[in-house]
């Protein structure tokens, strides 16, 4: 009997031990009692994967932080009414804070000011408002730095290839700060001024792929020897590459650079080397930092304020001497819109 008890006892004892090990392993899974937080996220539209990624990451972070997230989106990059309505609805819902990517820098300001008057913290993400003081904080890509990175790369790569630079600039549109800052950064990074003779052509494209293609066709007609192409974003870069290919230009002798870091361009154009390099921005960080900042504030932390650089990395499959970059695999792991 005694022997039987010992034989039966050992596995039971082992079971207790195993249970304790498993319980210890899962102890960290129990959520803490936290102050309830409600945050609203307003993006420009859902057709662009950039904004979809921002929303998805915000949802994930909200879940892990125990935050209730309300989301709203416009129908296009110029849909101000939807955004204003969303702000008002969120104020009525009693949110603690709002993250907003404004479709119009000035148009959304009155609604934001009304929300802040009721004690709601507002963080502008990706796109600034005018005046910037209308929001508590601004979380976005350092667009000038992004432009500078691709400018430095283009200069180093052109030198490596032994090119006499003939630069084409495919810009956004007048008055849009992100485009202006990227251009300014590119010129600084490339080491040229706005009126430098190496710039053989500069055209606005509104950031559109088709308009980018048309612009490139026109610039090539004027200067067939273009060998450095700066594009304000990847849709424009894809359009420009299409035009270069159609014109029978050997892409091995042309340096094409851009800004964005979307999955489509990195997989289909940066990986095969059609786009030589791109500056990758991170809407994930805007969402992550925005949600945690407001949650922290409600739970006793500091009120978000000032500007937060949400990061930018140069992605290329063909590194240039003296220029820090990350490989295409890094770009694919961290791209948005995959």
């Amino acid at each position: 009997m005694r022997g039987n008890f010992r034989r039966m006892g050992a596995p039971k004892w082992a079971l207790v031990g195993l249970s304790m090990v498993l319980m210890a392993g899962f102890a960290g899974c129990t959520p803490d009692d936290q102050e309830p937080v409600t945050i609203g996220l307003i993006t420009k539209q859902e057709n662009n994967p950039y904004w979809v990624t921002m929303r998805r990451v915000a949802e994930d972070v909200a879940k892990s932080e125990g935050v209730t997230l309300l989301t709203a989106t416009g129908t296009s990059d110029t849909d101000i009414d939807s955004e204003v309505n969303a702000i008002e609805a969120m104020v009525d819902e009693g949110v603690d804070g709002i993250l907003i990517a404004g479709t119009d820098s000035k148009g959304v300001v009155p609604a934001i000011e009304a929300a802040r008057a009721k004690g709601i913290t507002v963080i502008a993400v990706d796109t600034p408002v005018d005046p910037l003081s209308a929001v508590d904080a601004f979380y976005a890509t350092d667009n000038k730095r992004a432009g500078e990175m691709v400018g430095q790369y283009a200069a180093a790569k052109a030198k490596e290839l032994g090119l006499e630079p003939q630069v084409a600039i495919l810009d956004l549109a007048p008055g849009i700060s992100s485009g202006e800052l990227r251009r300014e950064g590119f010129l600084a990074g490339f080491g040229i001024a706005d009126d430098d003779p190496v710039i053989v052509g500069s055209t606005d494209t509104s950031g559109d792929r088709e308009l980018g293609k048309v612009a490139m066709v026109q610039l090539l007609a004027q200067t067939p020897g273009i060998n450095v192409v700066y594009t304000v974003n990847e849709p424009v870069a894809l359009g420009a590459v299409e035009a270069l290919k159609d014109a029978g230009v050997d892409l091995g002798g042309v340096v094409v650079v851009s800004v964005d870091g979307g999955c489509e361009a990195i997989k289909t154009a940066v990986r095969p080397g059609d786009i030589d390099a791109t500056a990758q921005q991170y809407p994930q960080n805007m969402a992550r930092k925005g949600v945690t900042a407001i949650a922290d504030e409600v739970r006793g932390g500091e009120k978000p304020s000032g500007y937060l650089d949400t990061g930018v990395e140069l992605i290329t499959g063909d590194p240039a001497p003296g220029v820090t970059s990350r490989d295409v695999a890094f770009g694919i792991r961290n791209c948005w819109g995959g």
Binding site: Y282, Q284, N285, R288, K289, L308, D309, T310, G311, N334
Partner: peptide, 15 residues
Amino acid sequence: ILILPGLTSEASKTI
């Protein structure tokens, strides 16, 4: 389930 989802993302490490 327990390791991969909890790792710090590379994007967030950039800042």
